[in-house]
Amino acid sequence: MVALVIALALFFDFTNGFHDTANAMATPIATGAIKPKTAVALAAVLNLVGAFLSTEVAKTISGGLIREGTDGIHITPEIIFAGLMGAILWNMFTWLKGLPSSSSHALFGGLIGAALVGIGFHSVNFETVLQKVILPAVFAPVIAGAVAYVCTRLAYALTSRHDPETGDKLTQKRGGFRTGQIFTSSLVALAHGTNDAQKTMGIITLVLIAGGTQATGSGPQFWVIAACAFAIAIGTYAGGWRIIRTMGSGLTEVKPAQGFSAESSTASAILASSHLGFALSTTQVASGSVIGSGLGRRGTTVRWGMVGRIAIGWLLTLPAAAVVGALTALLVGTGTVGVVIAAVVGTAVVIFMFLYSRKSHVGHHNAVEVEEAGTAVRFQKKKSARKKAAENKSKDAKR
């Protein structure tokens, strides 16, 4: 059972990787700063590195969320199995719909639902849930959005060019922000590794403690850190193209200065939360930053309909995963047969959603149309310049 839960946890880590690739790489892909395949490869490597840099979030999950070892509470591998099932199924569903929901909250919701049904209300440390899950979920995206808004306004104000004599607006040269996006998006990917990979480390550590193979209160072992790092890196390289499409062009039209500002804000928030041990939703922070950067650039329209859909997904994530986790906990509580049924049904649902997604395939070639449009515009400008040069040459020849 412990081995089954570890395998399931690593699969969740994989889904976390491709679900959250958009957090770092959607905006640089949208602006043409990085090619799609290069972007996901870079994100995968940096997620791998980031996973080795901190374990504070892992300790929050393995030793703070569930009251393990106190008041006679003993979480079992079966309960963790049920919680992971809730998280994975919600991750797959939101990926299918292209919604950038929180893998973290799906995991927390699944675990809480399973623990409430399998153990009891007293098993969940709601103080930790409030302080390190709920409050960061409310304030982090708002703060990140506000910072991205201010950064975007500053970026455009500081790089604005006008004719000193007439005061007329000149052609703006902001190509440097596109280059800067390579650095800022890389920082987001690194920060994502320091936060999200740890959540699976915490789960595996928790199941090892529950299985009696690790002491209560101890941190993740090295092999756990390495396995989780590689799982999230492979998932990141797979590329969550459906969510990249939503983040890159579904919320607002992204320009290089906006992308630079959004990514800087996102990376700062995630790194700070990792240091403090907050199990932050990187998806919510990245979405808030993109929206804030959209509001910060004049003439840009934020697609509030899509924002509303994403917000509904945020609100439903924790309770929906909790319901699935609770139902699975009821099933596995019947014994080995229940565990087998839950595993078979869960696997079948995942396979069904994957096969269903192939009907409307989204990949690196069609994930973000903004880059293609930008290429077409640049091509058209070059074509117009060549045409004008030819006309001038013809006039000179006639003279």
Score class of each variant (00 low, 15 high):
V2G: 13
A7Q: 07
A9L: 04
A9T: 09
F12M: 14
D13V: 07
G17E: 10
F18V: 07
N23F: 05
A26I: 07
P28C: 12
N47C: 11
S54G: 07
I80Y: 03
I80Q: 04
M85T: 15
A87S: 15
I88S: 01
S103H: 02
A106L: 09
G109L: 02
G113I: 06
L116I: 10
F121Y: 10
T128N: 14
V129W: 11
Q131P: 01
V138A: 09
A157P: 03
A157F: 14
S160T: 13
K173I: 14
K173T: 08
G180W: 01
S186E: 00
K199R: 04
G211V: 05
G211P: 04
A215Q: 06
T216W: 05
T216V: 11
Q221T: 10
I225E: 06
A227K: 14
A227E: 10
A229S: 12
A238L: 14
T252P: 02
V254D: 02
A257R: 03
Q258W: 02
S264Q: 01
S264P: 00
S264M: 15
S268F: 14
I270L: 04
A279Q: 04
A286D: 00
G296T: 06
R298I: 07
A311V: 13
V324M: 13
L327V: 15
A329G: 07
V337I: 15
A342G: 06
V350E: 09
N366K: 05
E369M: 11
T375G: 11
A376N: 14
S384K: 12
A385E: 12
K395T: 11
R399I: 11
